[in-house]
Nucleic acid binder design. Sequence first.
DNA 1: CGAGTTTGACCAGCGC
DNA 2: GCGCTGGTCAAACTCG
Length: 341
Amino acid sequence: MDSPGFSWNNNNVNTSLDLNVKPLLRLNDHDIPDQKKEVATIKFPELVRPKNFSVKEENGALVEELNRVSEENKKLTEMLTIMCENYNALKSQLVDYMSKFNNNNNSDNNNKESRKRKSESSNNNNNNTVGIIGNNNVSESSSTDEESCKKPAREETIKAKISRVHYRTEASDTSLVVKDGYQWRKYGQKVTRDNPSPRAYFKCSFAPSCPVKKKVQRSVEDQSVLVATYEGEHNHPHPSQMEANSGSSRVATIGSVPCSAPLGSTGPTITLDLTKSNKASTKEDDHHHQVSKPKNMDTPEVKQFLVEQMASSLTQDPKFTAALAAAISGRMLQPNQADKW
DNA sequence: CGAGTTTGACCAGCGC
DNA sequence: GCGCTGGTCAAACTCG
């Protein structure tokens, strides 16, 4: 199943940008064969040292050039960051739109929250939408028709609002707090039969206007993994997005979509595995590159990582590299216009 | 003092 | 009907 953009980069998109300009310019006479000097003079006339050009002046020019390239690098990085923000904003809007669309489709069925126990086993059994989200890949699969046909319609509407996210935490971290960006109010905790770890129950802080609940429990298999089960859909923007919309901050909301919304209207339950780290490479990682710090994706490290990834993908694009090379060489040929760029 | 958390009690579904 | 279990409530408690 295609997911509209919950991967930060596709496998076939390498986002590294090789901005480390290689020393394609050698400025010392003794480094340049005579024939090539001629070429260099033609292509980069300002880069070939004049006969009476002193070493100090040359060093100064080099330093100046280096500074300029560094500035360019910074600008490009900033541009990429802004692109990240724009992409993320668009993605959030898409998620909101899909949620609203889904709400409309299910409006007849989603009315009220009931204390009636929803058979968890049935949810698990029908938890066929096992998606794995990483920084490079998303795969989701929806319930088979055969299985969904077995379930009553009411159950399907419930399932449609459920998503599951795995978070890896420090093993020593005993709290059941999942930093997904939303604000939650804990209203209960229970030890369940099938898992010795307690299960915490949270409601969205915007309750009762926002009906979303989540359950957080440590995985039986791996105690360092927190399994958060989200029920319902937030009917308000993500807090970080609200902040962004208010214009008070330009902090990128990279990854701030907490994957808590039932991302697809077609699948009953969505499981997002945010637990894999780059360090712990598994066979699965051959196909799914994972976010190393899923818990708090607003951290500067993550942003830096994403910027690097996007830059990497841009360098893989021959058109982009060609355009970049042309731009750089163009600027070198017309240094007076450098500041205008 | 208000907001959030903890925790025991209670309720309701489910299986036998 | 009864016991088990998951989910929720709400009083008590904690913290800033």
